[in-house]
Design a protein around this nucleic acid. Sequence first.
DNA 1: AGCTACATGTAACGAGTTACATGATTAT
DNA 2: ATAATCATGTAACTCGTTACATGTAGCT
Lengths: 182, 182
Amino acid sequence: MALAHTILATLGNNALSGYDLWKNFSECSTHYWQASQQQIYRELTKLEKQGAISFEMVAQAGRPDKKIYKMTNQGKVMLIDWIAEPSSPAAIREELLVKVLASHLVPVTTIVKEIQRRQKLHQDNLAAYLTAATEKFANPAQLSLEKKCMYITLRRGIRLENQWIEWCDEAIAILQSEPPAN
Amino acid sequence: MALAHTILATLGNNALSGYDLWKNFSECSTHYWQASQQQIYRELTKLEKQGAISFEMVAQAGRPDKKIYKMTNQGKVMLIDWIAEPSSPAAIREELLVKVLASHLVPVTTIVKEIQRRQKLHQDNLAAYLTAATEKFANPAQLSLEKKCMYITLRRGIRLENQWIEWCDEAIAILQSEPPAN
DNA sequence: AGCTACATGTAACGAGTTACATGATTAT
DNA sequence: ATAATCATGTAACTCGTTACATGTAGCT
């Protein structure tokens, strides 16, 4: 359900190809939505059949033809109605935490290494988000409403990565603390 | 894949029925894994066929019979091997952030109300996690390794809820800030 | 009389993943 | 040469959700 709406939200007032959408998902929307190329193409076909989007075929020199999609009025209504509905928090299925839960079965170093690997990853993500923040949203108070909306989602990404980095430190400290003397 | 391992991790050294597992998932594991009753029963059948778990039928007076499952040695090996594999962060598909992204299409109050509703929810979750922390993990330094592992997952829950609460405040502040004068 | 807890299951569907398939252009 | 980028698609499969089905015990 929500992938359809995420595509509509990403299209916004722009006209994009399936490939453009996929690029946008992998580069800009990773901190709130993830979708594969295949999923996007499938969903575009469906949305077009429903009348929420329409496309124009564009021929290119030396490149495959592409379908440029844009939202229809019907699609816009669909998106606006959906925004007004209450939504639940996303389900959490975090493998690392399951591994931590069962880590008393393995040497402490095994899980500590895995946590360190993850922390590095979150540090890299954070750095990328902070760069994006300073480059694209240099003066938050002066942004247009549309840009403010984007900036708010990025702020969530930054907070999430920070939270992970701090948790990794805490987790390792607890795991390496002296066992109770008894 | 990972649901199977989460069931194994939850079983640990205990013997539990499908119903017990479901209760455990909904009460204790919500902050790192969510699964429906149906999913759990389906997965238990599969794991039993694979030899990772075995069950004993237990008849009860005035209650339906139940199957008490426990991990086999094979299951334990499977779990330990899995822990050693590197794992990727969970995919994020957060509807609220998509709504924020597209919220320039609706009145500001619409999205602000939804963010406030979500903040209340996270405040309630946080309160429940903090209660669990003081009741079950009163003296973190003195915990057994197994309990430490559980405590670490709870700490992530606490950090996540705090992060949400803070983000909600920030998001509302940005949305309600004066628009640029031009 | 109706709700919650206990206890397990089937069936259909929707969403997400992985593999396969094609083919030109541009950069290293 | 070979990899990456552009551009779209089919097919099979697994995972997750929702609906339906059954039946007892205890509480209000």
